[in-house]
Structures are given as structure tokens and as C-alpha cells.
Design a protein around this nucleic acid. Structure first.
Lengths: 205, 205
DNA sequence: TTGATTTGGAAACGATCATTTCCTAAATAA
DNA sequence: TTATTTAGGAAATGATCGTTTCCAAATCAA
């Protein structure tokens, strides 16, 4: 569960970084998720990350740099969780059910109230920040593509009927899962969101 | 299409207000919708409203007061549009289709990119502002209740099957329509969102 | 009229924001 | 060693934020 585990470049000049990048980004993305971009002040971010402003600006350039790094980290962590979740199901239909239930459980109680960083970025930043808009678009396209692939998988293994419109159904499930994250901000119960997940499976009949 | 048309109190002391409250709030809610709460500065708000800071603070108390008034105005205007839309359909099933299509058309192109003030408030403010959280909750409950009533209407007039779980289906359609508003922030096409609306109707089979 | 009350608006306010500066510390390269 | 490079961190910086102040203008009550 490490983001920068690739750049294991053994020799770099100057004083080495003392803080753990992934741990710092985990704190940053928590602050951004809870507060949103503008309400998250540098003071709150640096305090949560356990760093001073100087170190943060050395490492990320500016506030937007912290955000973009945290955004990447968020996506990485969530995708890993989803991949593990999907691996436990065996056919297309069950993987889709697992995926929808994953979002249902992320959309209730205190976890749900914390919200989704991608959904929050879409609503708060996408209109006036082209780069963030691009990254949000990529994230949604990725999620939609994953659903589409699972539908195709299900149609291939016989667990999802052939007659359904795969593309439109994928986009519909994308809307539904992101909508769960919005409704989850109001603190709904787990039973209710799981019931929604179950009803949503009718889209695959 | 006027919010304060009720307080037609003919006699009030002091200098009368010169600006049109609804027109000013329409501009304020546009700025809040596009920018979000924190990125919307008093300067931008007052300029859009055609007022100076002094007048605005006289009328609304503080920035949050402007926001809450704009939030109320937004809900009023949207509900009126939805009511008109629903009145043109004749049975429960058709009214539900009209409702979902209404959200689909609000979730594509430039209109969609402008976003929904309630969804934006849910993601940006609900966690740390109890009053906003309450108003967002009321708005979502209201929307969910309207869907539920339409399902019951459809079950009564025979256009919606009796066997479906009305409560869970209502919550599912609520998630779906709010999710459309999120995905719509990335500028999807009308055909695509209308196809989503059509697929969503499978939930009522 | 006079007094009370409220609005409109320019200017000023303190607070907080994101960011930079400057210096020290810790590593590599020569 | 010395030079170079990068990180850590306290303090200062300028800009912008939301808000207030102060005064003239416009209404009603007397």
C-alpha cells in the first residue's frame, strides 16, 4: 500500500527526506476529503501531516501540488481496496454485486459522512480547474470502464443476460455508485444503503 | 417565480429596499453553484448581485446568510420546474420517467457542468455545518419522498408493479438522480444521460 | 416640520490565507 | 576535507478574505 514504491532510486543528492510520503499524503487526503479544497488551510494540512509549511512547500510546490498528490494517493488506495473486493467474487454478476455493495458500505454512517475525494473534487473544483477536471474525468472513466468490463465478463460467463445494453448500464451504475456517496454525506444507515445495492442489481436482469 | 412574495407587508419603517431580492438571490445562487461556498468571495457575490458589501450585510447578516437565502431560493425554483414537469405526465410511471429525464437533462453539457447547489453543499459543507447539513437532509428527504409518492401513485394506478420495494426503490432512484448531477460535472452528452434515464426505468419493472 | 428607522455605499479594519525567506542540518560528490 | 545539494523549520510577507464603520439618502411616525 505504497504510492512511491517505484522510485527506489538509491542515490539522490542532498539531505534525505525524513517523513514518510504515503503517511503524510494519507493525512492530507483525509483533511481534503473532510474539509474540501478551499476550507483545508495550509496550517491544518501541515499539522495533520506532521510537517512545517517550509517542508511541505519544498516537497509539493504549492497547495494545489499537495492536493494533486493526495488525489493520486486516494485513487491508488481505493482502487487497491476495490481490486481486493472484486477478487473475492467469482463471476461477473457477483463481482458487480460486490462492487455495488462496496460503495454502499462506503456511503453510510461516519465513513459515508467523510465523503469521497473524487466526488468532492468534481463538485468543488472541476468547473474552474482544467487539470482537476481532467483527473476527475479520468477517474470516472476508469470506474465506468471497470463496470463495463465486469458486465462483459458476466455476459461471457453467463451470469449477466446478453440483452442488456452494457454501455448504458455501466454509466447508470456509475451514476448510482457516485450518487450513493452524495446521499451518504447525510449519514444514512447501512441496511438502507445495502438495500439500495440490492435493488440496483435489477439493472442487470 | 418569486420567493418572498408572501411577505407583502405593505408598511415597513425606514428607507425601502431598492434591489429585487429574487433577482439578487438568483445571481448569488449562480455564483455559489459555480464556485462553491468558500471560493465564492464577497466581492464576486456583491458584483454579481449588483450591490455593495454594506447593502448585502444589511440584508443578509453575513456570507452564510447570503448562502442560506440562496439555498432556499434554489430549492424553490427547482421544485417549481419539477412540479411543472410532473404535471405534464398522467400516471405514476410516466411521472417517474419525466422526473428521471428532468435530472438527465440537467446533468449534461454546460448546464450539467454548472452543477447542483444541494449536491455541492452536501459534499462541501454538510460535514462541519450542522445547519447546512440539516437543510441538505431535508432537501434529499423531500426528493426521496416525492419519488416514493410517485411509486405509490403508480402502484395505485397500475402503471408500476405492486411487487417492487417502494422505499428501497425510491432511495435507489434518489441516489441515481444525484449521481447524475455528479457525473454531469464532467460534461457528458445528452444522449448518454437520457440513455441512463431509460435504463434506470428498469428499476420499476 | 422633527425624530426614528432603515438602506446604499465608500472606505477602513483585523484576521487569516498561501507563500517566501533565511538559516541550519544532513546527505552525496569531488 | 570541501563543495554542493536538498530537507527541516521559524519567522516574515503581501494579498485577500469577511466584516465593520460611518455617513448620506429615503422612508414612516409624530
Amino acid at each position: 500500500m505504497t504510492t512511491d514504491s517505484l522510485d527506489i532510486s538509491p542515490k539522490l543528492r542532498g539531505r534525505p527526506r525524513e517523513f514518510d510520503m504515503d503517511a503524510a499524503l494519507d493525512e492530507a487526503l483525509r483533511v481534503f476529503s473532510e474539509r474540501g479544497y478551499y476550507a483545508a488551510s495550509i496550517s491544518e494540512l501541515t499539522e495533520a501531516m506532521g510537517l512545517t509549511a517550509g517542508s511541505v512547500y519544498k516537497a509539493f510546490g504549492d497547495k494545489r501540488g499537495i492536493f494533486l498528490a493526495a488525489f493520486g494517493r486516494y485513487r491508488h488506495v481505493r482502487q487497491q481496496l476495490i481490486d481486493e473486493c472484486l477478487d473475492r467474487a467469482t463471476n461477473g454478476h457477483d463481482k458487480l454485486r460486490a462492487l455495488v455493495k462496496f460503495f454502499a458500505e462506503a456511503s453510510c454512517g461516519e465513513v459515508g459522512r467523510r465523503g469521497c475525494l473524487v466526488v468532492g473534487s468534481a463538485t468543488e473544483l472541476a468547473l474552474f480547474d482544467e487539470e482537476v477536471a481532467g483527473r476527475v474525468g479520468v477517474a470516472f472513466d476508469f470506474d465506468e470502464r471497470r463496470i463495463l468490463d465486469l458486465i462483459h465478463l458476466g455476459q461471457a460467463d453467463g451470469s449477466v443476460p446478453r440483452h442488456i445494453d452494457a454501455e448504458s448500464s455501466a454509466c447508470t451504475l456509475l451514476c448510482l455508485t457516485k450518487g450513493m456517496r452524495v446521499i451518504g454525506k447525510t449519514g444514512r444507515g447501512q441496511e438502507q444503503m445495502l438495500a439500495v445495492a440490492e435493488v440496483a442489481m435489477k439493472l442487470l436482469d
